[in-house]
């Protein structure tokens, strides 16, 4: 995907099946408009998301990753999202330390009733990533020994 005026970021969304996924569904059924840049993977709980998933997504060339779960106190499993919160706090900080723009990882709480919030979030994130430009962290350039790296 070249960087031109038509360039659309690709976002990988990990959405909790009990809230954010239903929220995204509601955004669709209530005909809210948001850019088609987000690809969704349903997870049983946002607590399922290992930081490995986020790095792997960036490694594969996604421009941004969204992890979205239930609001604190609303977790279907009582406390899953609290663990997500801790894990994502350190992940975001550590990615920043590595030199990855922290805007490439977004974490949000979206309930099943917040279709509008989801649409807004997807729009906002797409806009931010457009400003940031494509993710060329792991790809693009030739290596010192002249071999091209596979994406």
């Amino acid at each position: 995907m070249g960087q031109d005026s038509e360039w659309q970021p690709r976002i990988l969304g990990f959405l909790c099946r009990w809230c954010s996924y239903a929220g995204a569904d509601l955004a669709g059924t209530s005909r809210k408009k948001y850019p088609p840049s987000i690809r969704v993977i349903q997870v049983p709980c946002s607590g399922r998301v290992d930081p490995l998933f986020i790095l792997k997504a960036l490694r594969l060339g996604f421009d941004g990753v969204l992890v979205s779960g239930c609001h604190p106190g609303d977790c279907h499993y009582q406390t899953g999202n609290y663990f997500t919160r801790r894990r994502m706090a350190i992940t975001k900080r550590f990615l920043e330390y590595m030199g990855i723009d922290p805007r490439r990882l977004q974490v949000s709480w979206v309930s099943a009733a917040e279709g509008a919030k989801f649409a807004e979030l997807a729009t906002e994130m797409t806009r931010e990533l457009k400003e940031l430009g494509p993710n060329r962290l792991f790809t693009g350039e030739e290596q010192a020994n002249g071999t091209k790296t596979a994406p």
Binding site: M88, A89, V107
Partner: peptide, 16 residues
């Protein structure tokens, strides 16, 4: 262990 527990007041300013 750190990641097997939580506090209700854990840092949240990065969450949208």
């Amino acid at each position: 262990p750190l990641l097997t527990c939580y506090e209700p007041t854990d840092v949240e300013d990065f969450i949208r």
